[in-house]
Amino acid sequence: MGRFVLRRTGQAAVALLGVSIVVFALIHLVPGDPVRTALGTRFDQELYEALIARAGLDQPLLLQYWLWLTSALTGDLGVSFRTGQPVTSALLQRLPATMLLAFAALLVGLLIALPAGILSAVKQGRPVDYAASSFSQIGVSVPDFWFGLLLILVFARTLGWLPPSGYVSPLDDPVEAIRRLILPATTAGVVTGAILTRFVRSSVLEAMGAEHVRLARAKGMPERYVLRHHVLRNAWIPVVTITGLQLATLLGGIVVVEVVFAWPGIGRLALDAVVRRDYPMLQGAVLLIATGFLLINLLVDLLYARLDPRITAS
């Protein structure tokens, strides 16, 4: 187990290095001068050259990368072109909001997907199955910005039950924080739930068709027992993988939901950075998202090894 963890961590580190190169290269390949954009109408040649020098943009690209990488390793991701704020602290400031929304959305997704997926697999071909499949089809097809706006219209504007947007830290006001979390988490969670429902269903169906399930029935184990210990226990393995991927996606990319609900998360920060050509901020945000992604995958693999005895032993 120890060697397995070590090997996977090493692999994750190599992947992260690759990501840093790609991120750096892509951003610098995109046309457009960030400093000129940042200065806008206040353009002044001397100030411009000073800023370029301060940002190190006059150095060769390889050297720029090396400097960025080495300081990134110490936790210093540079300074925003736009605001002058250190990127690291800007990201850390936004991280709790993103994480809260991501985990809440995943919870909503699982609360939908587990019962719907299991039920539709067990009752395959019956009305429940069709209902769950229709939900899933609609859930993946409906654009999230539209669904978010619809929720705001119904629950905030018309019924007035919940605030339409904004973020409050749960440390400041837990009740208000939850009230503000419900709509964005539902918006992102329904999509996640729709995707997960399909995976849960197909995964449970596959597990149900296994020969060992037939043997468990032939042993005279009651149906509930068979379902719990011989079907669901095996179905978890692929479900855990896809849940991890969904969480990673939520952590990195609910930009649209964050924009619709004025949610101060990493996604919106990254979007702003793209629009403003804020290189350090964008690099930092993408690196953070990629790290999160790799970290979750690492955790999934470790969990996988616990769920499936064949993985570490062989």
Binding site: E211, H212, K219, G220, R233
Partner: peptide
């Protein structure tokens, strides 16, 4: 079905074709 559960395994035992798949890999 409830009564059959007490017959299966207890009064009639089964051995299936493929031993590579008739055991649950996770238990």
């Amino acid at each position: 079905e409830e009564e059959l559960v007490r017959v299966r395994g207890q009064r009639i035992g089964f051995v299936f074709q493929d031993p590579m798949t008739s055991l649950n890999p996770v238990h």
